[in-house]
Design a binder for these strands. Structure first.
Lengths: 193, 193
DNA sequence: AAATGATGTTAATGTAGATTAACATTTTTT
DNA sequence: AAAAAATGTTAATCTACATTAACATCATTT
């Protein structure tokens, strides 16, 4: 099991001792998924938090009309999980599905308390990571309220150019909260300028 | 300075020793604001996180057209802060203003590292608090994408009946991401049923 | 109690983005 | 290389909500 990508990521935020690295290695597992596979399905209880080593996942909600709404993508060095289901161990509102073959390092709910207790630095790391995710989420709410779909698309394109390249356009539309037809219109309009 | 409300809040999540309580008391300050006063203004760097003891605040963004978009309210036992500005010490995107006379217990950025270092349990508390806030924020994004304004209003009303009672309707509209005129229409429509 | 400002309502008109549907293109499977 | 599946485009029509504007009510100040 190669957890080097996770260690590299961690080392940017906190410094672990050799002993802590050994302990961490014993707490996580490695898992490969094929394109199309579900890591989590709406209604199931989420037992794990995945650190993406390679590939890409989408987290989405299927509403009562069967419409899919994408909340986030996760690529290399990102975390992929329905945190709500994880922290309260209640049925998930969301699906997490791989849109490429994906390799993950997995933290299990059962080990989490022990991991935090043994390596408080990791609790710090997760606090900081979630702080950033929360801030990004609030900014997204504001953008959805105060900006047009075109403006939001341009920001997405500029913020995540690598992600836009590797996912189909209808998923970008879903992430932006618009239809694929309207995103198509926006793009042709941008192309004319 | 009476920090009992904060201690009561903390005791629901983690248990502090007497020594830790003494230390915490030395790290925070008490502050009163009048209705209308700003705790934070867009563009300023946020130096503090407030725990609301009494009163009510709103956090909002003023867009380029001068329109106000409310992100959250904070009443008793809630946290009120632009976390993005706080954690990165960069100019704030948001305003925090008191919509009632408000009393707060204030954590200062300068003390925060020391507080976490001295009371790791508080880092745990903040991790959990922010986890919940993040989850709520994600659910709000999904609701904004998948539900009508009427459905969102009904959920707000059922989730925060006390808050709806104490704030003007045009602020509820702003929080929901609609105009006050449209919320008025929704309410009269509900009344007819 | 009059005046002022803040908040709420109603109705007409406008628009960003949804829906539908038909077709075009690209990718994957056989 | 043909067929099938997935993805993307275009255009007509529809709708949820915004905008504007005029007025109504309530709260606060003088």
């Amino acid at each position: 099991m190669n957890i080097q990508p996770l260690l590299n990521y961690i080392s940017k935020i906190v410094t672990l001792t050799d002993e802590e690295i050994t302990f961490l290695t014993s707490q996580v597992t490695y898992r490969k998924y094929l394109k199309g596979q579900y890591i989590l399905q709406q209604g199931d209880i989420n037992k794990s938090v995945c650190f993406v080593v390679s590939g890409c996942t989408k987290m989405f909600y299927v509403d009562t009309d069967g419409q899919e709404h994408i909340l986030m993508f996760a690529v290399e060095d990102w975390w992929s999980s329905d945190l709500g289901s994880f922290i309260s161990q209640t049925p998930s509102d969301f699906n997490v599905q791989c849109i490429e073959d994906t390799e993950c390092i997995v933290f299990s709910y059962n080990n989490m308390e022990e991991t935090y207790a043994h390596i408080p630095k990791l609790e710090r790391l997760f606090r900081k990571t979630i702080e950033k995710a929360f801030v990004a989420s609030q900014k997204r709410i504001v953008r959805n309220f105060s900006m047009s779909a075109k403006e939001r698309y341009l920001i997405f394109r500029d913020s995540y150019p690598e992600i836009e390249q590797r996912i189909p356009q209808y998923m970008v539309a879903s992430y932006l909260g618009i239809t694929k037809e309207f995103l198509s219109k926006i793009k042709s309009q941008i192309a004319l300028q």
